[in-house]
Every structure is written in C-alpha cells, then in structure tokens.
Design a binder for these strands. Structure first.
Length: 436
DNA sequence: TCTGGGGTCCTAGGACCC
DNA sequence: TCTGGGGTCCTAGGACCC
C-alpha cells in the first residue's frame, strides 16, 4: 500500500496568532519582530506583497512602514507556544501518527485512509484535507494549508503548492495529478524551494545546469552524492517517491540546550556579562530539568556586534567539562561563570552572551568519581531545592525566584516595545469581550 | 541609533590506538 | 638506506531548517 504523508503548516503563524485575539489586524499589513524588535520574523500577506523579505531589519523599512501603515508587534512566544499546542492537539485527532516538526507545522501519516479497491481515492483525501483546515480554523482560529505526497519531501513540496496556488484552496495532493502534470509542475518550481536545498546548494546546483525541481528529480543521485552529500541523494530519491525519511512520532530528547540573547544595549563591564550569563544558564537549566536530562559540559560564548564595523571585534567560546554530569542550576552557573572569566577581555562592547549545555544524558547513568566529594544528603536536598524552584517559577512566572547573581538593574535585558498580552496563559491578561 | 534564537545532521581532518 | 596501515573517536565547521 502506498504511503500518504500530509504536512500541515500554519500560514504566517505568528501574525495569525496575533490576529486571533486582535481582529482589527485582519486585512492590515502586520509584521512580528524578533527579540529586541530587531528583524521581521513573520509577515502577513499584505507585507509580503510589499516585497519585505524574511529577516529584514525593522529599522530598514521604517519609511515603507509609515507609508503603508504596517503594524509591527514584538514577538510573544508564550502566546505562540500555547496556540501551537492547541493546533497540534487538534491535528493529533486526524492520525495515529504525528510528527511535530516545528512550532507551526506537523506531519501526519494518512497511509491507508481513503483507500478504495485499486488505490487511493484522491477526491476523498482532498476532502479530508479540507476537513483538517476547517476544524483547525474553528477550534483554534488559525489558517493552515495541507500538502500531501508519498514522502515527507513531496508532502513539503505539495504544501508549498497549496500555499502558492489559490486554485487548490489550501489543499494539494501530489498524487492527484497525472505524471505529465507532475513534470510540468516541477519544471515551474525553483530548485531552492525543495526542503533541504538551501541558498548555497541551490547556487552550486544551478552552476551544473540544475535549475528546477524537475531537473533535480531527474539528476543522477549517485554522482550528486559524490559532489554534494548523502543528504542530497536522499532528497532526489524522496522526490521520486522513494521514502528515505521516517516519521518520528516520538520526539527524541534534545542533544543540546541553548540560551542566548543579544543585549538591549551593548555591555562593557564584566558584572553585567556575568549577570546575563547567570540568567541564561538558569533558563537553560530549567529546560534541561524539564526534559529530565543532566549535562556533562557547559559552553559559554561571547561576541561584539559584527555590524558595528568600526568597533573592535571579538568573539570567543570555551567549553567547560563538568566533573560529574548535573542538572543543578548552581553547579551549571558556576561552570558558566568560570568559562566566562576565561574568555572575557576588557575593552570591548559586547552584544551577546550565550550558554549551551552539552553532552546531555539521562541521569541514571551517573558515575561516581574517584574524587567525588558530593555528599548524598546534600545531593538529595539540592534536588528538592531545584524542583521547588521550578514549581514556584512555573506557577508564579519565570524569574519569580532567581539567583541574586542575575542582578537587579538588568540594562542588558532585551527590548520589547509592543508586545501583545498573554491572552491564553495569564489570568490578568485575558482577552475581554464587550457586548453592545 | 536600530540587524534573532534554537536546533539538527554531515563531513573532513586530526589524535590516538594497535 | 630503510620509516605501515587501518580503524575509531572526537571536534570544528558548514549547511540546513523554522
């Protein structure tokens, strides 16, 4: 039986989330900005039509924004994460096998559904796709598109078609058209649109005369494997309908956990760098405990602002191995500050510090060390301390209880000038409806 | 003045071992 | 004068994704 994979993807996800609770934004040009209100990370169709590219710095389009009345919002990740959970829960009802691929998209395995004697009932499958769209629209209030195909790569491509070509009304199944029509379709799509083919590889492919998706599909997988990599070979096979990528319905534990931010204003003194490093290590440690892992090493990273070409530039990173793997905020912070001390140089204006927890593992494999001075009683009470910390911060809000080393002034904190309320996760920020 | 954050996988090359 | 070879592990860096 041939496989059917669907890729369901929200349209302009962050912008659509904002519109759910602020309908005045519907039909208006809207962008959502990154942390520090730096760059555009989501654009409404109206903004895309004005030619604003993903990742454009906000300050560069001030004029355009003024002329067209573009509304810019700071990102509200709490809201987006909550709506994402609602979408995923809704979509889980359509298939026993779901892979949540990113905050706004998931794969669903529809194999065996709408099968009739002799094969797939394409019309029924497309109806099913419409049902998915309608239900997510009613239950969560967000617009999605559905792409279907016999491999993940084809489902991704089909989703692209569903989004770009209005005649399909948001649902496209690659198998719904004839082989000849498929060739025509693929010939009209640039090779860079394929999932896994980025800017660099697209350029190199074009130098070899491979311009369209059709060119890529019909290229020789073995020879491209040699000049590129096994990744590209798999992409070609997937485009031909030969499945190389499985649906991962159980999310594997993260192999590394990062936390980094560009500062609200450049930082010159060591005290503030240490405060930020402490804060980010604390966040990373919370995520670490949430997934039930321990870290074997902490990496610290600092850098100046690369866009300020006249400023002296510096960047450095160091990895501090831990004697025994831990999920204890205090131990992790200590290692991070130790690392920071090693790479911190005076005389620079720092823009960013980042923390990465590495060598993650399940805690059961904890190996006692020859010079391990950990007192089992202390170990136990520290565990209790960490879970209490997490419980309070979960209930009362992040940062309610924190290390004094995070500081109080926090001038380095990110800027967020126009953030919408956390409509769905904070009692004091609930949406209010007025009756007239 | 103002330019994000968090991940994954693959490969090449060096270190090391026998 | 003559100076191996094969395998594994680790890391850094590049490319990609959203």
């Amino acid at each position: 039986m041939s496989r059917v994979i669907a890729l369901v993807d929200a349209n302009n996800f962050y912008v659509s989330c904002e519109r759910v609770f602020n309908p005045k934004l519907v039909g208006r040009p809207v962008v959502v900005l990154s942390n520090n209100d730096g760059i555009c990370v989501a654009r409404s169709n109206e903004v895309k039509a004005l030619g604003v590219k993903m990742g454009t710095p906000w300050f560069q389009i001030q004029d355009l924004a003024g002329r067209h009345g573009i509304v810019a919002l700071s990102s509200n990740y709490t809201l987006y994460a909550d709506l994402s959970n609602r979408i995923m829960a809704t979509l889980a009802g359509f298939s026993p096998k779901q892979e949540v691929y990113s905050i706004d998209e998931c794969f669903l395995d529809l194999t065996g559904m709408h099968h009739r004697m002799g094969g797939i009932d394409h019309a029924a499958l497309i109806d099913f796709g419409q049902t998915i769209r309608t239900r997510v629209g009613r239950w969560v209030g967000l617009p999605v598109c559905v792409g279907m195909g016999s491999t993940k790569t084809l489902a991704k491509l089909a989703n692209h078609v569903a989004k770009k070509r209005p005649q399909f009304s948001g649902v496209f199944h690659y198998g719904q058209i004839s082989a000849r029509e498929q060739n025509q379709l693929l010939a009209g799509i640039e090779v860079g649109e394929v999932w896994g083919v980025g800017r660099k590889i697209a350029e190199r492919l074009k130098q070899r005369g491979i311009h369209s998706v059709l060119d890529l599909r019909d290229a020789d997988p073995k020879s491209l494997r040699n000049t590129f990599s096994v990744v590209l070979e798999r992409i070609i096979l997937e485009l031909r309908g030969e499945s190389c990528l499985d649906l991962e319905d159980i999310a594997p534990a993260k192999q590394q956990i990062m936390c980094s931010r560009t500062f609200g204003e450049l930082v010159t003194n060591g005290k503030e760098l240490r405060e930020a490093a402490t804060a980010y290590t604390t966040r990373a440690a919370e995520k670490l405990r949430a997934q039930g892992s321990v870290a074997g090493a902490v990496q610290v990273y600092v850098r100046t602002n690369p866009f300020k070409e006249r400023d002296p530039q510096y960047q450095a990173a160091v990895t501090i191995p831990l004697i025994s793997p831990t999920d204890d905020t205090l131990h992790l912070v200590k290692a991070a500050l130790n690392g920071l001390q090693q790479i911190h140089r005076q005389g620079y204006r720092y823009q960013k510090v980042g923390i990465t927890l590495l060598d993650l593992d399940a805690p059961r494999s904890r190996q006692m060390q020859l010079f391990d001075d950990a007192d089992p009683v202390e170990l136990h009470s520290r565990k209790a301390l960490m879970s209490t910390l997490d419980a309070i911060n979960r209930q009362m809000g992040t940062g309610t209880l924190r290390l004094a080393a995070e500081g109080y002034g926090q001038r380095w904190k990110v800027k967020s000038e126009s953030k919408s309320p956390c409509y769905t996760t904070r009692w004091d920020e609930l949406a209010v409806a007025y009756a007239r």
